[in-house]
Nucleic acid binder design. Structure first.
Lengths: 207, 207, 207, 207
DNA sequence: GATGAATGAGTTTTCATTCAT
DNA sequence: GATGAATGAAAACTCATTCAT
């Protein structure tokens, strides 16, 4: 019974935390870290400023927590997408497709994801930066092994180092997403993953 | 003789301006726009704060001036590299090679170039953002025409839309540069442009 | 009980606001708008600078609030003094007497009142200036109607346009107050209102 | 010949000084002491900022010099106007008329005259204030003796202390001028001096 | 002697963070 | 345990003044 009570309190707490993180995400992604004040976040989340500080030691802490959580979600979905298939080419297709879907539904997250993973962050926050970079690296390793595996199974030709292939695919997708952020109507993310993957799959130059 | 005098004063002015811009570049690229104060820049450039304001109306102005100048330099070199060759594949090789060289000598610039062109900038500065985006787009158009031209001449196969190819190449390079910014020793930018270009040139999947 | 609490908090707030306005009044009246810094006011009021800004959006805002409040008080007293009597000459006597009293107790206010209503203010603050001028004009209209009424009732002779009489009385009193501000001991404001009013009431030149 | 040279140089200097004072007057009277920068004055006078400082030790000094000169001019004209006539009433008429004329031609001067003599200045500048007040007092003494003289000669009735009469006339005129500064078209300064003087000359109340 | 580039103290304002209620 | 009033450090920017050329 005591356990129940604690649990309920904990659930309540978790819900409040979520609301704060949600408010923070929406504001940060819209205006950037430095253009959002803690008061603004507190107000949007409908908590007192003091309460916000009960949950997060400071602004940096809140930002990190939010980024890590979102990145967790994001990478979870992506990893799942890759794991979901047997065939390596299919893994990649599903990965590209999933990114497109994630993007369409979670623009704010992607916007932040970009800002932090693509040099822009200037290490806003010492720890976070490296943690996210690490996670990103981790994910590149997964892609790398997909390529390596495909090559080993002779499904892919060894046109380049598998890690380079992973970096490249990541870069291509990022470039497409970046176009999208600038002008969603003019540059929609391709529905068919092969639109993107053929750039890797097919050779530009006759062999 | 009077002309000399004016010219000397002007040269002096230009030199001071350069020193200020250099100090600003180094600080901004290290810490980001919002984490650098005008006093800091003035101190680093070894001028009084008032002198800084004689040259640039405000912080925004200084930032814009610095970014535009650097982007001018950067795009100039790149465009030149592309124009320098007849053959389209060679254009691309020279382009990739040039980027690598530029990068090695101008890390701070690249760092900023990234932050502003790759979605991360939450429109720090109204005008600048769009101006840089525009310039980037312009440059993508140049790449696009290289691909289109190569396809038309049957030097390249039509594996994807030329604009998509341009975006992809840009993305791949950005991804490599991004690796480099994180860990220069572990991820050096490839000396041989084909290391990167083969990813486009050769097909991953048998046809 | 909740009501009590709110009311107490509100009263506390009002008291703080008053202290800030009081500090501002005393400093502004002593040194002038431009020679007083917000830090100075905060210090004199014994609040942190941030607290000052919680109450007033900016320096202008604080100044306006202070001036409008004081002018409200001042004009309220004066209008009351005039309304308090039946006879027009008596109205004027009471008005002059009241000004003298107000002055003796509220030197700083008067000093500011002067600065803003007597041309000296180079439109320090767009809105305020006109608002105070308007209020002053309003008050001149009241005086005008006292004179006009007295003339109509044949209590006063029509020696000049009633509005001119109002302006003149206002001017005479201002001149006396101005003397007073310079050297209170040498030029006390006359106790007997007729000392001033006889200048209007009696003719200097035989008729 | 040497004397000539010096004299010419001196005349040149005096002319430059005049130009600076003129520029200062026009700017100060338009925008107020604190809203005018030394650079602005230098530019308007078409001198280098350093040259301005060769002539005036600092901003305060420049302001004082300008005010004192203008007040000299002003009081000179007024004193002359009073001295110009035998009859005391006529002296006053001529005085009022002269003020009106001065005003119409030198609005900026009057505006400043006001700001400094009517409390508004908040003692912008320690010394100046008292010097101008003194000069104003001196002038009140002249008016006082006109009234005293008139009373002694039985041209005026002793309705009030002569100094009070002087203060009052000064106040009345100031009030009219103040109206004028606010709305020149609506409140022109009376052409006929008796419009103003009758307020003193004639009795409002039957005797 | 004139010039105007350079200086830096001082001003307004914001906002992360604390802590008494 | 939540609250939000109070805090004050720090930032952008201005302008009177100096002094090397």
């Amino acid at each position: 019974m005591i356990k129940m009570k604690v649990s309920r309190r904990d659930r309540e707490k978790a819900r409040q935390r979520q609301e704060m993180l949600e408010a923070a995400l929406s504001l940060f992604s819209e205006k950037g870290y430095h253009n959002v004040s803690m008061h603004e976040i507190a107000e949007k989340a409908e908590f007192a400023i003091g309460t916000l500080y009960k949950f997060f030691r400071n602004k940096e802490d809140l930002y990190k927590a939010m980024m890590l959580e979102k990145s967790e979600e994001f990478h979870g979905s992506v990893r799942e997408a890759i794991d979901d298939h047997e065939d390596d080419a299919e893994k990649l297709r599903n990965y590209v497709r999933t990114i497109g879907e994630l993007f369409r539904t979670h623009v704010p997250v992607i916007r932040l994801y970009f800002s932090e993973t693509h040099g822009a962050s200037f290490n806003i926050l010492a720890g976070l930066d490296s943690e996210l970079k690490e996670r990103h690296e981790e994910f590149l390793q997964i892609l790398t092994s997909v390529f390596a595996d495909g090559i080993q199974k002779n499904r892919f030709k060894r046109i380049a180092d598998p890690y380079h292939l992973a970096v490249s695919l990541d870069g291509i997708i990022s470039a497409f997403l970046s176009r999208l952020l600038d002008a969603p109507e003019r540059h929609p993310f391709p529905e068919d993953p092969d639109t993107i993957l053929n750039i890797l799959f097919k050779g530009l130059v006759d062999e």
